[in-house]
């Protein structure tokens, strides 16, 4: 890979100062960024490591909300987010054990891979993405494949999840990469049910509003029976067609509802 300067700030302010150079990029767990740099698809002049910033790490639970620092690894979320079992289970199912020891929630969200798991949890939970400058509602954060509302030089510092009454995440794994061929996160709140789908759409994570309406009326897999999801705009690749993915969305939504706790 091309060489670069390695910057190790100890505080968010130091990181932001280093990221003022528009050719610099933040580095979190690096589980996506390092492979893309090896392929020379990415050549930052400097990498600003966020993992040395203690303020960005940890899981805090308070009064119906779980706040997770952006540089918290998947393994730590799996072990510590006990107040939101569906979220902990999702984190514990990302990639493989080695990847979970490096990859972070903030890195996953900022990258917004169309088949990543975390975006589904954030969108289905109506979570709030806290950045170095503002708070962004989940519905405003994801902006299509590999694109988010983050501005140049802005970094995620934490994510705040309201804890639902019941929730579950179901994914169908692509067996080689273990990314979601399709993944569905269902979360039931007093105000209604939210359903977010990852891995399926060409536009990245999205909410399946028809299923939300049906499940808000009756929280049962049988409420989905009359629904179908159009294959238009779904991804087709060597692992599955658009029609296959659209079908999987409904199957996995039903399974998520059936196992929600």
């Amino acid at each position: 890979m091309y060489n670069f300067d390695f910057v190790r700030p100890a505080t968010v302010d130091e990181a932001l100062a280093a990221l003022a150079d528009e050719d610099a990029q933040p580095l979190s767990g690096g589980q996506t960024l390092i492979p893309t740099m090896k392929q020379r698809l990415n050549a930052p002049s400097a990498l600003v490591s966020l993992l040395g910033i203690e303020a960005l790490k940890g899981v805090k639970t308070s009064d119906g909300t779980i706040e997770i620092g952006a540089a918290t690894t998947h393994a730590d979320v799996a072990a510590q987010a006990t107040g939101y079992p569906a979220l902990a289970a999702l984190a514990g199912g990302i990639g493989d054990p080695a990847v979970r020891n490096r990859g972070t929630i903030g890195g996953s969200l900022a990258n917004n891979d169309p088949a990543a798991c975390y975006p589904a949890a954030v969108l289905a939970s109506g979570a709030t993405v806290v950045t170095s400058g503002r708070e962004i509602a989940a519905d405003d954060f994801f902006d299509g494949m590999f694109t988010t509302a983050l501005e140049q030089g802005e970094i995620i510092t934490a994510v705040k999840f309201p804890v639902p009454q019941a929730a579950a995440y179901m994914k169908f794994e692509q067996p080689a990469s273990r990314f979601a061929l399709c993944g569905v996160f269902v979360a039931k709140y007093a105000e209604g049910v939210r359903v977010a789908v990852t891995g399926a759409s060409e536009d990245g994570v999205f909410r399946w509003s028809e299923a939300e309406a049906a499940l808000s009326a009756t929280f049962s897999a049988s409420a989905l029976e009359g629904l179908s999801l159009s294959a238009e705009g779904m991804m087709t690749d060597l692992h599955g067609t658009a029609e296959y993915r659209a079908h999987l969305v409904k199957v996995l939504t039903g399974r998520a509802v059936a196992s929600a706790s």
């Binding site: 390695f6 589980q31 492979p35 490591s49 080695a98 990847v99 490096r102 080689a176």
Partner: peptide, 27 residues
Amino acid sequence: CDTSQCGACTVHVNGRQVKSCTMFAIE
């Protein structure tokens, strides 16, 4: 593989298993 998939490079860093091909030495 050098692409973070095969795990042949697995080592422990501070007691946790990581793929050493997908982490910089300076880290």
